[in-house]
Design a protein around this nucleic acid. Sequence first.
DNA 1: TAAGACTGCGCAACCGTTTGCGTTCTCAAT
DNA 2: ATTGAGAACGCAAACGGTTGCGCAGTCTTA
Lengths: 344, 344
Amino acid sequence: MNGNKLPTIKEIAKRLNVSVSTVSRALHDHPGIGLRTKTRVQELARELDYQPNQAAISFKQSKTYTIGVVLPNLKEEFFSEAINGIEEIATGHKYNVLISQSRDDIQREKQIISTMINNRVDGIIASLGANTTSYEHFTTLKKYGIPVVFFDRVPSLPDFNKVYANMNTGTREAIEFLIEKGHRRIGVLNGPEKMRSTHERIETYKQVLIKKRLKIDLGLVTSTDLTREGTHQAMQQLLSQRPRPTAILVINDYIALDAMQYARKQKLKIGKDICFVSYANLPITSYLETPPMASVEQYPFQQGAKAAEILMELIDTPAKEKAQAPETFQNVVINGTLVIHTKR
Amino acid sequence: MNGNKLPTIKEIAKRLNVSVSTVSRALHDHPGIGLRTKTRVQELARELDYQPNQAAISFKQSKTYTIGVVLPNLKEEFFSEAINGIEEIATGHKYNVLISQSRDDIQREKQIISTMINNRVDGIIASLGANTTSYEHFTTLKKYGIPVVFFDRVPSLPDFNKVYANMNTGTREAIEFLIEKGHRRIGVLNGPEKMRSTHERIETYKQVLIKKRLKIDLGLVTSTDLTREGTHQAMQQLLSQRPRPTAILVINDYIALDAMQYARKQKLKIGKDICFVSYANLPITSYLETPPMASVEQYPFQQGAKAAEILMELIDTPAKEKAQAPETFQNVVINGTLVIHTKR
DNA sequence: TAAGACTGCGCAACCGTTTGCGTTCTCAAT
DNA sequence: ATTGAGAACGCAAACGGTTGCGCAGTCTTA
């Protein structure tokens, strides 16, 4: 049907009897090109609906104007919101965003990194899978000169750029809130050992209890592998404690949903027999008749945006880094804050 | 720190004293290369951790092994689940997936298509923004030989490839279910006029009512622009009808959440004073104390996967199409089926 | 032993764009 | 008229990989 030949710079050059270099420069408003030719070129380009071949440019400049994003999944609103933040910054810098889900599977995660290397992305933003404890696939990236910024689920090693929410402030506020509301037996439904946040959360939990002169009962501290079954098991353990906890601090809103579901099945009235406070403050909880009492906002959009900003800076820092100090890593901590949903 | 020079085919050739073409062929297991050289090349490649430069390959072959996905947003589980289906198929075919959100903004949608053209994606999968009624930005793609497959929110024109859920079967089942449960005043909270599904839904609604010899009251049919405010307004209208509807059919689960929220504010008991049935059957509703009575499953994963399969076929059909009949378009319809959540 | 067939590899063009450097032209100043 | 300085543009290489074709060398066969 159509000639199927996309217009190229060459084509324009031929039609106008000028060289390809002139066309290229004219299209870039290069000062060395006269006004007459410049407009002639630009007009013809518009007329032919010329679109520069990004693949060729990427090739020539060895720069793809693409950043990769690796995260566990897109289903959680936390992550899709983080992507919004990333997109916002990236498209503002004329970068494309290549998204891939690791589904908490380290093999997939490695695979994804590998294809991103092949595609020569200019940088990577990552949030670790729940079971990722080794980071070789990320350290490999240094060899290729591909900068990485982690967010939310960040590695526990110091030599990476990270953006994450501080568990301390939010957790402190959450527990103090619960104590203020009269709760004395506060359970914790934590995440996998491997996740950094898990330790921070428990540390702060202990600190606050000690400060408030409350007894610490480790039977009230459980963890889930993030699956629904795991969460139900953990809940079973928590609810079997005597006296039963009157409030539970849950690693995130999604898990809180599972936990609340379990509690309901046990004929417990949520908000009355047992209260929940969790992390993330996702919009979906606002639709619940009995949402968690409060939730620690983690600012996913801001985390994503900040990570993207840092990455953009890193990308725009070429050979200068060598002159720089050996290497410096950014470590941005966002303070989570408690958002209260219901009074009691 | 590092030489920062990525290993190339040239590098390997030089070290082994063979030509680049030999290296290239050896890496591709070309029969014209002897076993000795083949293994020598492959071993050195592994040793140097050689990764082919995808940008160069894309350029040479004018094929990027990337497909673009345009959809309204990632937040809705429907779409993120659809992406899972797309990813599944695409990665199986060694394709990358470039995702962008239009946010129901046609300007953004056009912009996205434009950058995808620049990036020379091999094909596009799209779900239309709520306000998109003109499709020039998609027809432009034909000029570039980029195939497009729509899913879920598809254009109403015939000359496009589409995958979508049939509203008829699911709607019929839903209404019959409600009638069976004794409901006689059934309201409809529909979507924007511009969406194809809106008309299908209302047509089936009327058909079933007529067949069951129930009176059709157009005051019971409203529509929302998908915003929370729009939904609340529509609900206000529905609830002001006399006699008040006892059940409402809602365009999708998210809107149903907004609608139920409004109903609760009006002191109505959900599942007692008023019942809801909606579309999509999203996991989140299973966490509600009072979920919709039933929901029409739309199979987002399958929709995404099917769309991707069609696209893969289209991509692998190059010049053959010319010999083919003028042009043929696939039109896959998936039957939605009712999933019942609560008995009454 | 010479012809033919086959094996194994190299040459070089090509994809579209960018860019350092050189060349030509214009025009003002001498 | 000669010179010199800019202005305006062209030449050609380079980016990394693929591929049609050609050319040696080896082996088989009559």
